[in-house]
Design a protein around this nucleic acid. Structure first.
Lengths: 226, 226, 226, 226
DNA sequence: CATGAATGAGGTTTCATTCAT
DNA sequence: GATGAATGAAACCTCATTCAT
């Protein structure tokens, strides 16, 4: 999404045609549809999304969506795949292996937070997919192999930190990864109801900055040896 | 709708019945509808829910739903109100003020985890409402006054813990409450996609038990003075 | 169709609601839809039929068709069942068992001819169903048990005729029944292309009368002992 | 359509090619389309046929069909013309005039039966065209002049048979021809519903052989002098 | 000779909702 | 208090066909 030159494939679902001779328009059109679908799906969920709106947003004929993506659900999967591809690509650009353990973990928390903040559709799309028990993702071969390399990186950080006698031992990197994601995700994803319940705007710059500090302290307070 | 004199309430909780000569059946029917709606909404989201299914689940005529609840969105709000009322009621039964600070916080983590586990619809319903930016809850006067008492309880625990030189200072109880909720909520709410991504069943008894340990350690590791 | 008082059931397919309290309107509406569907399906085939047209012909809302009949294919099956029910009912009114063998067979040829002439939709509907390899009828329990009683009657006639030394022996009643139907059916069903090929109007009163004579002679010429 | 100079023919038979410098591929492509269209139309009827499927079956681009045949209905007519051309060609190979009258008639029954058995699409295509009241054939000059030569041959056989005092007199050859076709056509065309109704597989080798015997006896029993 | 891209019209079906009793 | 009958609007999707190369 952010990298128009990357040969991002919408593939995975059957009906998608991969343009061999690389006609300019076809590619651009597919991108436009994908972008529009991302917006619509993230704004209203799978059930609430309207193919008509997606077509309008993309500036293309409704029929063309079916021509390229087959069906609403296949399009949804394509959007999910695209969304995951984007975050995985961003993750690759972190160079955690080059940082000292404590800085590395802090960097990871920041990255996760910033990414969710900058890509709110990521949260909504995942919520939709979870409502459907991941039935679309489970059909995708590509996603399964996109297993987050972060877990490996995190695992390395933890080991290095422990060997340096900085971090506590026995930490499951998957648990930690989920916890970091949890702290960032929930705050932003449930912001609307939380704000209502607590009667307090959670999205002011101050609030956001305080949240990041708090999360970092929670994670580091847990990890660092006493 | 045809009976303008009928005090049709969009409400839902048992206690708030109109003092007219109504049979018990009316109450039971409303409860059945509410329960059916909770199931349907949590299973498919607001957009995906079908009034027909709700009527079928409740074993009543579709028209009755409109008679009692006015519209689909009003029904959704009633479900939300009922859902919040239930968790608030459960929260009241905790007696954190009688526990020492560390035990109290641990107990709160457990309670949150257990409640989400036992009431999965709570997570889905909140996700739906957040997708809609809390527009239903914002219309409800009842909800807005239902601030979670846990924040106050947590605030007391934190103060007691700090005074006993057990807990670190400067902890915002709202931030901590949100963090506890985050750790429990995200793991369960996003279980489907997480399981797919990590290729690991996160709901086995062992996995659940490990998660609870991990979360408790994260929270206590952060809170306890070094 | 011809007998509005008969408790003709549109049943068979799942979605059909059988009106217990026998509301007048519901029954009349279902009949109207069935009649309209019969007309539309027989005029254009299953694929060519338009639900919109059926609704218009019946003077009801399109949605109502789905309310009563579930889907286009279920409606088609209901039409087929209704069509078969009608011809079976008409067949019952023949009293072949009371006629002498030769007269009985002649009467049967006449009946078949007259029925096809008076109910041209019967031919078209069967053609459509055969195009679909009887996939709708095969789903119907009712049809299977409606096995033509005519075969039994015909069998009796053949036996009586043979015992009286009038008819030849070794005649399979099913083969004969199919042959009688063939002679009538094909002439009428394929009339359009036959007329084009032979450049001769096959539907003038004279032509029809000649056809009936010819068919009767063919059948009797075959059956009667030399 | 884009090439007004191109002598695009709605025709279909091989011989009628335009004398322009065309490669063999063009001819082969047209044949492939025609064959694919025959299969698709006979399988699903005119209304049910999909241009997309025809293109896929023929292994050509959809646009090409329009280039060569103009429209779906024109293509359907081309298929009909091709189908009729084929049966007429087959009929020419019969040499009934060299056979004695009784053998000739028997041979004709056999031929008709065998041809329908070997070319089931013939039946389905005719049914479709009859559903549309022969509106396509009526537009074709070629078809209208293609009177079946069998009628003439049959007429001769009848005359010879009558002169030899073998056959009964006063038999209209058209009626007899239609009857022969009827007996063969209906059994095969309506096989699906008949099998369902009678609960008996009508296409086993034994059943087919018995049918041929029966039909031959019916026709000969009618024709032969007593 | 051939094709991928694109479309407008219209198809079946679904849905929340209301009418009439 | 309760229900079967009925509907208008709009959803997803399909189809024959044309555009541009």
């Amino acid at each position: 999404m952010n990298t128009p030159t990357a040969t991002r494939q919408t593939a995975g679902s059957r009906a998608v045609r991969v343009p061999e001779p690389r006609t300019r328009d076809a590619d651009r059109t597919q991108q436009a549809i994908l972008q529009a679908a991302t917006d619509e799906f993230s704004a209203t969920g799978l059930g609430g999304a309207r193919m008509e709106n997606i077509a309008a947003r993309a500036g293309v004929n409704k029929r063309l969506i079916y021509y390229y993506f087959g069906s609403k659900e296949d399009l949804f999967l394509a959007v999910l795949e695209d969304t995951y591809a984007s975050i995985r690509e961003a993750e690759k650009k972190l160079r955690l292996e080059n940082l000292d353990p404590a800085t590395g973990v802090r960097r990871l928390v920041e990255f996760t937070w910033d990414y969710y903040l900058a890509n709110p559709h990521f949260l909504t799309l995942l919520n939709s997919e979870n409502l459907h028990k991941a039935k679309h993702l489970n059909r995708s071969a590509r996603i399964q192999e996109m297993n987050s390399p972060l877990v490996q990186l995190l695992s390395d950080l933890l080991q290095r930190g422990q060997q340096a006698n900085l971090f506590r031992g026995g930490v499951d990197p998957v648990q930690l990864y989920i916890s970091i994601a949890s702290l960032c995700y929930f705050y932003l994803s449930n912001n609307a109801t939380l704000s209502t319940i607590f009667g307090r705007d959670l999205l002011t710059p101050t609030a956001l900055s305080e949240r990041l500090s708090h999360m970092t302290e929670v994670i580091m307070g847990y990890l660092l040896r006493k």
